[in-house]
Design a protein around this nucleic acid. Structure first.
Lengths: 329, 329
DNA sequence: GTGAAAGCGCTAACAT
DNA sequence: ATGTTAGCGCTTTCAC
């Protein structure tokens, strides 16, 4: 390559990298040669030398289908950059272990993280050693920088108020572990809605499970008697997978919504739209979320001294009323 | 590292790589040092030297949610190997361009490919240069090796027969482009089912669109008059995203299934299970598919001389009857 | 402004 | 069986 253009190898490097100290003329000459030879630089060698990898990692549990649209959003921002996105599935268990094995074989210039739990010591230890910008997606992980924070508060509050207005008082709030930001915030919103109306909420109706279909079903098992006795007349679900279990349980127990139980869930999709009656939901703009966090991470990668100094992007949610809730009898 | 263990750098390499020509004793000594120092080899440098990347790429349109479970399957096989999986979203357009840009910045030891089209010249050109095992997922791409092939034939035939048995004759077969294997095979099965019963099928009812919700809706627009006139009484959908559009259209036009139209689709999920009435479906075992293709690719990576010499894994499908079809009136 | 040379951390070939 | 050395393809420093 270098001798085809009749220049030194260092000069080629300068041309490719747009470094200073090269005349426009030789630069042109070099790019011609590049064209002719179909040369493309070896990214591995570049990385080895420069410690830049042109690569960002998105660590997430891909079982949650929402991540696909988020990834699309991330990707769309990255298209104008020279970075490549790697999706890495961390599942729900041994997250730190999986991330470790990813990081052993790959290097990233930046990382986007959405873990199933916020208080994972192994995780913190792992990342504290890593000298790379890491932004979290809706997680308050101590020591890490929050990139995007979804404003569940206002929508959950609206949803709760909506149910209260319909006359419901026994409103079950069903989430995965209460140890991640969205759940915590949602619980706060729920409580505040009750308080502002001068109503008492029942702590016992704030339920925690896992982010799975099965867990949703399990929780319903406990809820059923209360539903039948009228103690619980509405469910506000904070997770889509659990929501599936709740729906199955409703079906299996010959209940009907909104007649026997009013339901609201988080995350809008084909299912919530196509079910009949359609489900009242809290929607977050998935693509936008991906774009926002991508932009923030790029900023941090380009200007490391800013790291952690920028505010998180706060993404609004929408409360969409459909037909899954009725007046409390 | 090397001098901590009191050995030469080459010896360390031999230990790490399990190469021959090293005594068990020094090996042990070296691993002790590795432990103590928390040393981990620089994968970039190794790759540069060895042209092995310990990395496989899965190129797919992540809008199709099915891929998530397939990826889980792939991953589960990879967990016992030293390979790392990168999911790369190729969307539906400019697939060759996207793949090219991925390949410029990353190297893979093997590639799993599921493209939205089979006859992409750019794609073939691209991969013909690439000296790496590539296996396709349900695609017959000329020049590439098929890794896994899903047996849609038997299920689509069963589904068609099922509809015929219910008295349906006007059965619309709705797919994305007929240019990918699953669609082609399904069309064959559909025709064969008709023929075996001595019945004539209407070529005009074999419809092609895009793999999108909107396209499903569009096709329904054409179908509606025929449904109302009774010319079409059943729909067999070959794509889940199109199916969503079909369902929406049914809803918007105040039709009811199975009363006004019988429907069957491919791909089982929460939606098909939870809709009421539940949808009769053709299911493919997604995790198994991922595992199979992963195993085959690993084989090819380890024994390149086998490449293309092994048969594709044929994965069976299941035809699951639920409540979305009724007797033809 | 440009070429030559050092060296990133490894593996493989060559010594011993 | 093990130490030493060349060199993978770049970027960067140092001469000029």
């Amino acid at each position: 390559m270098a001798n085809h253009a009749g220049v030194g190898i260092g000069t080629v490097s300068r041309a490719i990298n747009g470094s200073a100290g090269i005349s426009a003329k030789t630069k042109r000459k070099i790019f011609e040669s590049i064209e002719q030879l179909g040369y493309s630089p070896n990214q591995i060698a570049r990385s080895m030398r420069s410690n830049k990898y042109k690569s960002i990692g998105f660590f997430v549990d891909i079982s949650n289908v929402a991540f696909a649209l988020i990834a699309k959003g991330i990707q769309s921002e990255l298209d104008n950059s020279s970075y490549t996105l790697s999706l890495c599935d961390i599942g729900t268990s041994d997250v730190a272990g999986k991330i470790t094995s990813f990081l052993e074989s790959r290097k990233f210039d930046g990382i986007i993280l959405s873990t199933p739990t916020e208080n994972d010591d192994d995780l913190q230890k792992l990342f504290s050693k890593l000298n790379v910008p890491i932004v979290t997606l809706d997680r308050d992980v101590p020591g890490l920088v929050a990139g995007v924070v979804t404003d569940y508060f206002s929508s959950v509050k609206k949803a709760t108020e909506y149910l209260l207005t319909l006359g419901h008082r026994g409103i079950a709030l069903v989430g995965g572990t209460g140890k991640i930001r969205p759940t915590k915030v949602s619980i706060e919103a729920y409580k505040e809605a009750f308080r502002e109306q001068g109503l008492a909420f029942d702590e016992g109706l704030i339920l925690e499970g896992q982010f799975t279909n099965e867990s949703g079903k399990m929780l319903m098992l406990n809820l059923l008697p209360k539903i039948k006795s009228g103690k619980v007349s509405a469910i506000l679900s904070l997770n889509n997978q659990m929501f599936h279990g709740i729906l199955e349980s409703i079906r299996e127990n010959q209940l009907e919504y909104p007649r026997d139980i009013s339901i609201i869930t988080v995350e809008d999709n084909e299912l919530t739209k196509l079910l009949s009656p359609a489900i009242t939901v809290i929607r977050r703009p998935l693509v936008t979320i991906g774009q926002s966090i991508s932009r923030i991470l790029i900023k941090y990668m380009e200007e490391p001294e800013l790291y952690g100094k920028m505010p998180s992007a706060v993404v609004p949610t929408e409360f969409i009323v459909r037909d899954s809730c009725s007046l409390c009898k």
